[in-house]
């Protein structure tokens, strides 16, 4: 066995390991996707499972978006309405929170990275101290505050909370990002007499765009995936996002696993696609600089 043979053996071992890792990572996702396009007969077949449906069907998706009949007695909204309102609410809060927090963090990131002012370290610490704070400490009283402000069960209330909770991550990302932009470029602009606003607007913003995209994507993903905040601060389909709707379905459809699977696929599709196509951006943000 020569070098070529050894190399071939090494690759064979590696690919076997890769197969094991990918089965571990993807099998549950694969199975819910298959469940959502299977007919009930095949899905409930026992004892032999069919690992890919012989007649793939989108009927479950049609059911959850168009039929309102299968809701539990007790005054729940019809399934179809919940699904579309959940989708709408998830999109609105994710995009709005992402956009607002990106805007705030970019301005602040520049201030922390490039300016010296009184209270700078104190304010930075105040923001970063939120990171390890178990959120419950704030949530309990925040619930009563939101009630008084009449922001309970509103999209505006959710967006305000998400923006606040995302601030430490976003500010940290933009601060480190702006700091990596070469100082000389800014100095040149200062010599030309540009004020802070013009400097930020015409020099920093274009250069910081990749950082802003990363912040926006991370913020959107975190908001879309969040469950605890809407669990506490929403009550009706006025503001319930998909993560909440999915848990309502688990109670509603007692045994309709194919329909629940379809709802789960709809809930995880945007994060899934973002993870496939924008992973580089997301990883940088989600690891908080633990990885350069």
């Amino acid at each position: 066995m020569g070098l070529r043979g050894q190399e071939r053996l090494r690759l064979a071992v590696i690919y076997v390991c890769c197969a094991v890792v990918l089965i571990w990572a993807l099998a549950p996702i694969y199975w819910v996707a298959v469940s959502s396009i299977s007919t009930r007969q095949e899905l409930y077949a026992r004892p032999y499972k069919i690992w890919f449906p012989t007649q793939p069907t989108l009927a479950s998706y049609q059911t959850i978006f168009t039929q309102g009949a299968k809701f539990r007695d007790g005054g729940f909204s019809p399934t179809a309405d919940l699904m579309s309102s959940g989708l709408r609410n998830s999109v609105i809060i994710s995009v709005a929170s992402g956009a607002i927090v990106t805007l705030l963090a970019t301005g602040a990131g520049y201030a922390f990275a490039r300016m010296r002012f009184r209270g700078r370290n104190f304010i930075f610490l105040l923001i970063m101290l939120m990171l390890p704070l178990p959120i419950w400490v704030s949530l309990i009283a925040l619930f009563f505050l939101m009630t008084r402000l009449q922001l309970l069960d509103t999209l505006l209330g959710l967006v305000l909370i998400f923006v606040t909770l995302l601030l430490p991550l976003a500010v940290w990302m933009m601060t480190t990002f702006v700091r990596d932009i070469p100082q000389e470029i800014q100095d040149a602009a200062r010599v030309d007499g540009a004020g802070r606003w013009r400097l930020v607007y015409s020099i920093i913003l274009p250069l910081a765009r990749p950082g802003m995209v990363a912040v926006f994507l991370v913020a959107m993903l975190s908001t879309w995936n969040n469950f605890l905040i809407p669990l506490i601060f929403t009550r009706t389909d006025d503001s319930q996002p998909l993560t909440i709707v999915l848990t309502l379905f688990i109670g509603q459809y007692e045994v309709a696993w194919e329909d629940m699977s379809a709802a789960a696929v709809v809930t995880m599709l945007p994060p899934f696609l973002m993870a496939l196509f924008f992973q580089r951006y997301l990883v940088r943000g989600l690891t908080m600089g633990a990885v350069k």
Binding site: A25, L26, P28, I29, L221, W224, N225, N226, F227, T243, L246, T247, A264, T267, M268, P271, F272, M274, A275, L276, Q279, L282, V283, L286
Partner: peptide
């Protein structure tokens, strides 16, 4: 690393 990016409830 896909599973990490999906919603916990899912």
């Amino acid at each position: 690393i896909l599973p990490w990016m999906l919603p916990g409830v899912v």
